[in-house]
Nucleic acid binder design. Structure first.
Lengths: 168, 168
DNA sequence: TTAAACTTTCAAAATATTTTGAAAGTTTAA
DNA sequence: TTAAACTTTCAAAATATTTTGAAAGTTTAA
């Protein structure tokens, strides 16, 4: 396979994976493009490579920056802004986990906590089932939350090393 | 909070979480409704509760069945089919992990394996960056894959117990 | 200041996804 | 068989999301 073709495939696959996980396809593609680019790129180059509009490129890059996956770089003597993606996979995974926890897990945990406080008659099957499901899900969500917390603080080698030592 | 209100909130929250994770909102809502229902429900009852059409209810239930989250039940002497959701949170998590691995992770792993085989000139920065990103992501994806595999086979208590023993 | 070079915004258009509901299909009891 | 009771399908409509591109905004050098 040609390098050029391989790059296209990678961008396509990353975009598809993103869209299946609720991340905008274009955002994932821009991220993929930057991941395999040794040098930072300008908005112009990104627009060109992926055939997207200026507005789209701009908003997508801002999003990637707010996710902590991409950073702006200034080149001395140049007016243009350059964009560069962190290439450390473990950092990427941590960053994504961190953002999604904040944006999605945290609000759900809050609601589950409230809902598990709802009082009711323990002989009422409706109430019993509701309460059991909510408290069980709450427990699971809290476990996931704690695990993410550990992962966010961890070093990659330590993390996987520990996991595999145990799971072997 | 009233039980009825709490139920609505739970269904809403579950639906929102689902849509943020690339699962159809209605599908997640039907799942939520069944999770807090002590008895299996008919298509009719689900349509009514969530104000959705017959076609939508039917397709959503089929999806949930194909995900292994809901099962059909027949009641003796009745023509109608009843739908019942597994209430075991750990099973739900495993089932979802299993399906997503099959549908999303596996195809990506296949592509990454191919892409990491692409040959090139080791002095070419373009090639070097491409290769490094692809092989790194491939490693991470394989680790995730193995961990999911362990989780799919594991008992809940053992799993979290082990995780927490280590992570303290 | 000015104006060129750039970035950002956002309403409208394009596209993708979801939902509806009627028609077709299937199963069961009699 | 038949017809009632149910389920499934799928094209069209509704809705949600994404993208465009022109206009407005900002920054910099001179």
């Amino acid at each position: 396979m040609e390098l050029a073709e391989a790059k296209r495939k990678f961008i396509e696959a990353w975009g598809k994976l993103g869209s299946e996980w609720g991340i905008n396809r274009t955002m994932a593609q821009v991220h993929a493009l930057l991941l395999i680019s040794p040098e930072p790129l300008t908005t112009e180059e990104i627009m060109e490579s992926l055939s997207i509009s200026r507005g789209n490129a701009n908003m997508t890059l801002r999003d990637l920056i707010s996710w902590g996956l991409v950073e702006k770089q200034h080149k001395a003597g140049e007016r243009k802004e350059y964009f560069y993606a962190d290439k450390d996979t473990w950092n990427i995974a941590r960053q994504v986990a961190k953002e999604r926890r904040k944006r999605e897990l945290d609000p759900v945990l809050k609601i589950l906590d409230e809902l598990s406080k709802v009082e009711g008659n323990k002989n009422n099957a409706e109430y019993k089932t509701f309460n059991k499901s909510v408290t069980d899900i709450n427990k699971l969500a809290k476990n996931v939350d704690k695990t993410l917390d550990t992962m966010l603080k961890a070093e990659e080698n330590w993390f996987w090393g520990t996991i595999f030592k145990i799971f072997k």
